[in-house]
Every structure is written in C-alpha cells, then in structure tokens.
Design a protein around this nucleic acid. Structure first.
Length: 586
RNA sequence: GGGGGUGUGGUGGAGAUGGUUACCACGCCGGCCUGUCAAGCCGGAGGUCGCGGGUUCAAAUCCCGUCGCUCCCGCCA
C-alpha cells in the first residue's frame, strides 16, 4: 500500500515543497469543520501540518474527512500549496503552507480520549500515568523524551571519544545488604536462594578495573526498595563511570567536560568550568544542606557570639552543650506576618528544630519575637548586617540540626520570595565529606558513603583514634539543590580495607561472605581507581526545568511504587509461587 | 512508620453555614456554517460526589474508618 506510506513527516513540509505531491502519516490532532471546507491538523513526532479538504475535493476525501475524529491514525495523499497571505499562521512551523488532500485513508480509529493531547492539558498525574501512551503523544512529553535521548547520546559520544568502553553488568546479582533495601529475585533452580537487583553496579565496575578496563562507563538501571519521592524512584538510571590510575581531580575534570558537552549540544547552554567547590562543612554552615541550591545567596550566619550572656536560655544552652546558633537575615522580611513566620517554624521543626526564634529590625532596633533579650545589646546584632525592615531568624540546636533546619527555611524562602534564578544551572562539587558517621542506634561508626571509600591521606594515622575527624576522598556533584552525582576514590589496598572493616565492626567472616568476590579479585594486582555516577533522570529533569523525575521517565511508578498503566505490582499464580518454593504469609 | 494537601459526568475545576433538578469550561453526540488554526453558533446526552459505615426527616457538605494520588520527615551506603 505505497499510497499509505509517507514521503514526508508532518514536520517537514515547507514553502519549498509547494506543488509537490506528498504522502503524510500521522494522527488527527484537531478538526475544524466549516460545513463546506474542512481543516484538520495532522501530527506526528516531527510536527504538525494543516490538511485542507476543499469544497470541490474528490468524493472519497469528503467521505473519509467526514469520519475523522481526534487521534485517528491516517494516511493523507495531497499537494503542498502556499496559503493565501492572510491565512498564514505564524505560530506554526508549517504555517506558510497547507496540504490539499486528494486521498485520505483511515489506518485506525480511536475511541474518545480520556484527556486532550496538548501541552496545556491539565489532566492529573494519576490519569496521565494510567494512559501514559496518550500522555507521551503530547509535544512536551515528546520533547522531554527527545532531550533524554540527546543527553544519553552525548554522554556516550563524549565518553567514547575519550576511550571509555560501555560494558554491561548483570541485573541479577548477589545480595549485599548494605545501604538500601534490595529488591530480591527468587531462584527456581535453587529454592530458598535469591538474586538481588543491583542498587548500582558498584562492585562490578570495581572488578572491571581489576580486569584492566581502566575507563569504563554504563548507562545503568539501579534498583532500591525504599520510599520514593519526586526526585527518587524505585528504579532509576545512572551514568556509571569508573577509571583506574586517577585522582579526584581527574574525575572532576572529566565530569565537568562531560556536563559541558551535554549541556552545549542538548540545550545549547555551555557551562562555565571548573565548577565551584565547597567543603561539606562549608556547605552545611553556609547553606544548611549538603546539596545546596546556589542559585541564590541568603547565607546562614553563625550566631554563637549573640548567645553569650544574652540571658536567653535557649541560645545559651545550645552553645554550652556544644551545639550552635545559626542565623538567617531575611531582607525586607519585617513585613512578614506571624502566620508566615509560623509556617517557616513548622518547616524548621520537621527537621528536628525545637523552634524558630525571630526578631524584626525596626527603625530604632530589634522588635518583636525574642528581641527583648537584645534591645540593649544592638552591638551584638551588628555583625549580621541586618537593615531596618529585615527579619532575623534563628535556630539553636546541635550544629547539624541548626544548619539543616535553617537550611530548609532558606530553601523555602528562596521559593516564596522568588530569589531563585530559574534560568541558572548552579553546579558545585561538595568535597571533604566525613568518612564515618556515628550511628546512635547501633552504637558504632558507619561508612558515610560506602566501605570501599578511600580516606584522605592525611588522616590515615588517626583512622582508629578519631574516626569522626577523618575525611574521605569522596565527592558529590550538586546542581540547583539536587544531588546529581556521587563518587569516590576507592581503597585498593587489603590492609587498609581491613582497618575500615574493623572500625565499622565488620568481621572478616562477614566481609568475606558478602564481598568475598571483590576482596578475592583485589588479591590480584588491583589498580588504584575511582569513579562517580551521575543520575540521568535528575540531570534530564533539571535540564528540562521539571520538578519531578517522573516527567522525564517514559513509564514511571507512583510514590507508592505502583504503575497505574499496567497495574504492577500484581499477584501471581499459585503455580508460579510453587515453582519458586515460596508461600505467602498472611 | 509519621505529618500536610487532595479525590465531584470522559477531563479539569466550582459547590463545604446539611435542604428543590449538583454548576462551569473543555471533550462527546446531533444540527448549521466556504478560510479556520484552542474555529464559531444552536441543541442534546452523560454523575452510586474515591470506597464503607454512622448521625439526621434530609449528607458532595457533619462524624468514624478505609483506599488512591501527591508533598515532606524517617528511610535512600
């Protein structure tokens, strides 16, 4: 049926095609029936073009045209013609021309739609996900999928150009229950035993280094059985990268080059490099987050000096017990209502703060809130450089709680006061993370990143004596308040690895049982190596200006881990369970 | 596990101090119309107000429970 096979896509016809006979395939996007003359827009991935059914069109065309409804899939044979001058549509790429139909064949019909295929469709996400195949037809979703493809392609182009091999690793692996909860796959051949879905290809990429593939990458699916969020799915995609014989500096340069390449070619937005670097401590101290949004300033300040002898117990106690008092100056914030401030306090409290102290700066000095403790001590307020009309906010607590709680307030203000430059991509490396974190529940040190992270060299002598002070050779890449990538230089020395296992209370037996295959591999000349793994979904989300990674995933799951389209997860037949030796416990 | 928001014809929203036939826009069906492009005009169909229970003469509306979606805390090496 050659007359049903397109000679052009719907995005292609222009004035240059005038008088040419063309065949188009596509979906009926909209029909405008004027009784005598009839128009419809034909749409495909590449664009839209207006088809005209003239009053003197062949009978076949009129009959078929009369049957057309939204989203019918059709073939149109016709002639491209220039539109009359006054009928040109400047909002349409093909607006100078139209196609005069000489034959229309309906390839398939469509039931009435649950929602309109258009970018301004305001169907709720639940409905969009149930009919994702229709949602994906909209220009905006098609664009996001195009962007996602472009990003993957440019990543592959860039890394391949630098001699990286893309190597696949298994998606059914050994369960190594550290970190997130594993998704498990029961084995039929070995009843009672399980594979796990990888949380990342971490151990395999390190083994590939042992195998001599000194530049590896993979666009890999990762699976974590934890509660989802707007920027977190059960299943996500990482650009997994590992290199041998490198330092963190090499990784930074590589990723900066890669991001610049991707942004330049995918959205024509070159990135200034090198990226800003912030230590974990500075990021927390100044922005109250280890993934600060650097698109606006509004920095946290230290208010410990203010607490001294203020007579304000909440501040004094926090400092006396080794904690901190952090302050935030909100320019012009004195106009905020009590309700506004209470809402900010609620935000601070979710992060563990006991309250949010505040005072306004009036023409004569501090007023309202906790100002009575400071009315005669205005010199103490001087360092904050608050002006009349500003609002001062304080959180007094442990250093970490004070920082994160006020950091959350900062983020909230960034949005509500519209301080964020929405056209910016504010990249930064966060470095000098602590290697260990104290776990109160377990009463022991835990690896902050993972147990194969190299400690920074200058701390090697105090690993055991002062684990909390040890910084790791590990780094995060953040952008606009999102963690975009995380990585580290790895340990390749068995003796050092053993010391780390000892500190986190990991016995040799246990280590051998869980990571034995990696430790075995490391007995055969492992090269020094390190890597990083940028999250593809978050990267594309940020580039697309979206707030949720579900917007850049073709078939995402809901926050409850369900897929409204295919209704997974679902129950399985008793026979399937029997094969696997599995019984459901009610 | 916890907290906030939300659920009303196919879609999105209004209705919330309980009270006639649940309103609007879009879509859908029928009709008119020769230049529209979110076409226009006229007419029409379409609803267990998420689900279950309760209070009441009477519940979309009040109460209890429950489910879905979503944002956040916890969790996510």
């Amino acid at each position: 049926m050659d007359k049903n096979r397109r000679t052009l896509t719907c995005g292609e016809p222009t004035a240059a095609h005038c008088d040419r006979e063309v065949i188009l395939n596509g979906w009926v996007h909209r029909v405008r029936d004027h009784g005598g003359i009839r128009f419809f827009n034909l749409r495909d991935r590449y664009g839209q073009v207006q088809v005209v059914i003239d009053t003197d069109a062949p009978e076949q065309v009129k009959t078929a045209g009369n049957e057309l409804k939204l989203e019918y899939c059709v073939a149109v044979v016709g002639t491209v013609r220039r539109r009359p001058e006054s009928m040109v549509n400047p909002d349409m790429a093909s607006g100078e021309i139209e196609v005069q139909a000489t034959e229309i064949n309906i390839l398939s019909t469509s039931e009435p739609l649950p929602f309109m295929i258009e970018d301004r469709s305001d169907a709720r996400e639940e409905t969009r996900l149930k009919y994702r195949y229709l949602d994906l037809r909209s220009a905006s979703m098609q664009n996001k999928m195009r962007l996602r493809h472009e990003v993957s392609f440019r990543v592959r182009e860039y890394l391949s150009g630098l001699g990286f091999y893309e190597i696949e690793t298994p998606t059914m692996i050994k369960s190594t229950p550290e970190g997130a909860r594993d998704f498990l796959i029961p084995s039929r051949l070995h009843p009672g035993k399980f594979y796990a879905m990888p949380q990342s290809p971490q151990l395999y990429k390190q083994i590939l280094m042992v195998s001599g593939f000194d530049r590896y990458f993979q666009i890999a699916h990762c699976f974590r059985d934890e509660d989802a969020r707007g920027d977190r799915q059960l299943e996500h995609t990482q650009v997994d990268i590992e290199m041998s014989f490198v330092s963190a500096e090499d990784i930074f340069a590589l990723v900066e080059g890669m991001m610049n390449h991707v942004f330049t070619h995918a959205i024509d937005h070159p990135l200034p490099t090198p990226f800003v670097r912030l230590s974990y401590h500075d990021a927390m101290n100044r922005y109250g987050s280890d993934k600060p949004d650097l698109r606006f300033a509004l920095e946290l300040q230290d208010a410990a000096a203010l607490a001294q002898g203020s007579g304000f117990r909440v501040f004094e106690d926090a400092v006396a017990s080794g904690g901190a008092v952090k302050a935030l100056v909100v320019p012009g914030g004195a106009t905020m209502s009590r309700k506004d401030i209470e809402s900010l306090e609620a935000t601070a409290k979710t992060y563990g703060a006991k309250g949010l102290a505040w005072m306004k700066i009036g023409d004569t000095g501090p007023e309202g809130g906790v100002s009575k403790f400071f009315t005669d001590k205005t010199d103490l307020i001087q360092p904050f450089e608050a002006k009349a009309g500003d609002l001062l906010l304080f959180v007094a607590d442990t250093w970490k709680v004070a920082c994160t709680a006020l950091g959350a307030v900062r983020s909230s203000l960034g949005k509500s006061l519209d301080l964020v430059d929405r056209t910016a991509f504010a990249f930064a490396w966060i470095v000098d993370f602590p290697l260990f974190e104290w776990d109160d529940e377990k009463g022991r040190w835990e690896a902050a990143h993972h147990m194969f992270t190299m400690p920074q060299e200058q701390y090697l002598d105090q690993l055991e004596s002062d684990p909390g002070a040890v910084k790791g050779d590990l780094y995060d890449l953040v952008c606009n308040g999102f963690e975009l990538a995380s990585g580290s230089i790895r340990i390749h020395n068995a003796e050092l690895q053993s010391r780390i296992f000892d500190i986190v209370g990991f016995s040799r037996d246990e280590a051998q049982k869980r990571f034995g295959f990696l430790l075995d591999a490391f007995r055969y000349g492992p090269p020094p190596h390190g890597g990083i793994a940028p999250g593809l979904d978050r990267l594309v989300m940020i580039m697309a200006g979206e707030q949720s990674i579900r917007e850049v995933i073709a078939f995402p799951k809901t926050t409850n881990g369900m897929s409204p389209m295919d209704d997974s997860p679902s129950e399985v037949d008793a026979d399937q369970l029997k094969d696997l030796g599995i019984q459901i416990v009610e």
